[in-house]
Nucleic acid binder design. Structure first.
Length: 561
RNA sequence: UGGGAUGUCGUCUAAUGGUAGGACAGCGGACUCUGGCUCCGUACGUGAGGGUUCAAAUCCUUCCAUCCCAGCCA
């Protein structure tokens, strides 16, 4: 990644960092990516990961990976493992800086006692419903809890007994004593500890009480010496609270929280809840379903880490809510794969093509270049015979204006092979063309001729004798509308699921070398798109996922008419 | 209707009082053994009104629009 030398575009966070470095506020910067291990990472997280780790890389600082694991009822090591795998796969390294908020439970507890001793926190016995009432509303101020004025000793005693497990879940909470009249609801004596008699995936049964996010996050940042704590916009309202805790406590430093707009991508959803829904209710086949915007899904689909990082760079960082066009992601994979993917030929909708003047029982070997963008990729052998298949849509009985693929009497080139001319069509009882009879020019071997005649149409094909049957999984957007935030009144996002988001094509045929791939190998199927060998791939049953199509200016031209 | 934020080409994003720039998407063309790639060209924008200034996307002001907040979730 070191050789990705490109000019970085400025953004408001870099500007802040530049100023902090210039003013001497900081000599080095430390950022962090703080996921809660309660779900799989998605492309929105990738934006945050690339931002935080990218900043650390560019400023020679550090980026910590910290699991924000303060709610044991939702969290699991399965998620911890997948998150670490995904961050690494994206190309980032936290080195020795792996942390868990649960590592700080003791310190967090001690700080809470300090708050109590300073008269800045109290044990409250309001039920959740009562608490809601006392909190007030957006427009009316809250009321003080009747338990707000307990003595320090009583608070300390109660809090210690909460920790010891003497009280049932929900019966008591520790609250900060701030201001029930604040127009910012987060400042209305927020809960900082709640009782949860649930085992934690790391601390087991040693705790009966768990700290809340607002309390934990700022202190964790301070303990780790984070300089810039970057989070999403919805935490903007929490910043006063973030600062309040750090101002009350003898913490080692006071990081600055900076908020940016989370990623929205057209035609998909980014909420963990909705994603979990899709998985649990079987609308997709798991977290790594290639239609999912999860890192795991995108990896399986065939997106590369390089493409995702490039995407993250290109979308930039700002504070305005926005919706990025999925096409940008397609652009990024194509750009990456165009350089790297080996070319292969496959036919998705085969129609038989017979070369009538080619000798029977002969199969010859031709050379085909593996990647015109990379001469080091070399050549491969492909076989050619009298019996071929071409793409049905590459033939048109009555060619339209501008058509330069196969048509009756028209000479075209079979890529890497010969010039052929279609002389005759065989049709079935319904008038559907079932076979094309062509003649070839033996002097055009390799796909060119000495007389230099111009052949505009070039087509992909496979040799019937050696072709391998493929399963091609053709993906489309999971949803039919670009903005899932704009679902109509009374409708659910499920009403917009695209019934054709996966089409399994088992008619496809590929050149024989496609039998020798392994899961994860990526190819450009000539003129069709980029494909990745799926996890289900085996030499006996080669399965490929379509990552994206190629740009298709012919299709575009057709659409306009 | 309280508080917090945000409005720049279709989309994303630069500009730090001094020529509104880039990318994707679009359009047109060149090239091409992929209607791919590449290259060239081109159109399109400061939410609205008022003010300050030689000069405003930027400062002031009044509107308007959108987003977030009433979990013992993060």
């Amino acid at each position: 990644m070191e050789n990705e030398t490109k000019t970085v575009v400025s953004n408001f966070i870099r500007n802040i960092i530049d100023e902090d470095l210039k003013s001497g506020k900081h000599e080095n910067i430390v950022t962090r990516f703080p996921p809660e291990p309660n779900g799989y990472l998605h492309i929105g997280h990738a934006k945050s990961i690339c931002l935080n780790f990218g900043l650390a890389r560019d400023y020679q600082g550090k980026c910590h990976l910290r699991f924000d694991d303060t709610n044991p009822v939702k969290e699991d090591t399965e998620y911890v493992d997948s998150i670490m795998e995904d961050v690494r796969w994206l190309g980032w390294d936290w080195n020795e800086n792996l942390f868990y908020a649960s590592d700080y439970f003791d310190q967090l507890y001690n700080y809470a006692e300090i708050l109590i001793k300073d008269g800045k926190a109290f044990v409250c016995e309001l039920s959740m419903e009562e608490l809601r009432e006392y909190r007030g509303t957006l427009t009316v101020a809250g009321k003080n809890s009747p338990y707000r004025d307990r003595s320090v000793d009583e608070n300390l005693d109660l809090f210690r007994r909460m920790r010891a497990g003497e009280f049932p879940d929900g019966s008591k909470s520790l609250r900060a004593k701030i201001d029930m009249g604040s127009p910012n609801l987060n400042m209305r004596d927020p809960v900082i500890y709640r009782i949860k008699k649930t085992d934690h995936h790391r601390t087991g049964d040693s705790w009966q009480i768990y700290p809340m996010y607002d309390y934990t996050h700022c202190i964790s940042d301070a303990i780790e010496g984070i300089t810039h704590s970057i989070c999403t916009l919805e935490f903007e309202d929490h910043r006063p609270l973030y600062d309040w805790f750090l101002d009350q406590l003898p913490v080692p430093c006071h990081p600055r929280q900076i908020e940016f707009a989370r990623l929205n991508l057209s035609y998909t959803v980014m909420s963990k809840r909705l994603l979990l829904d899709l998985v649990k209710n079987g609308y997709v086949k798991g977290w790594d379903d290639p239609r999912m915007p999860t890192i795991a899904g995108m990896r399986r689909r065939g997106f590369t880490p390089e493409a995702i990082r490039e995407f993250a760079d290109r979308i930039g960082v700002a504070k305005a809510n926005s919706m990025v066009d999925f096409e940008l992601l397609n652009f990024c994979v194509r750009e990456d794969l165009n350089r790297k993917a080996l070319r292969r030929m496959a036919v998705l909708d085969p129609i038989k093509l017979t070369i009538t003047n080619y000798p029977e029982d002969t199969i010859e070997e031709l050379d085909a270049e593996n990647n015109p963008e990379d001469s080091a990729a070399g050549f491969r052998k492909i076989s050619f015979s009298k019996n071929l298949y071409i793409e049905r849509e590459d033939f048109m009985e009555e060619p339209m204006k501008g058509w330069f693929r196969m048509a009756p009497g028209k000479e075209v080139r079979l890529k890497h092979a010969y010039y052929v001319t279609c002389n005759e069509m065989i049709k079935d009882a319904n008038g559907i063309v079932t076979e094309l009879l062509c003649s070839y020019d033996p002097a055009s071997r390799g796909g060119w001729s000495q007389d230099g005649r111009k052949i505009k149409g070039t087509m992909h094909w496979v040799c019937a004798e050696t072709a391998v049957p493929l399963e091609a999984r053709i993906y489309d957007q999971l949803f039919t509308i670009a903005d899932l935030g704009a679902v109509e009144e009374g409708k659910s996002y499920l009403d917009y699921l695209n019934p054709d988001s996966l089409i399994i094509n088992t008619r496809a045929l590929g050149e024989s070398s496609l039998r020798d791939a392994s899961a994860g190998d990526k190819f450009q199927f000539l003129r069709l798109g980029y494909f990745s060998a799926d996890n289900d791939y085996s030499p006996e049953k080669p399965v490929f996922n379509r990552i994206s199509t190629l740009r298709d200016s012919w299709a575009k031209q057709q659409k306009k008419q």
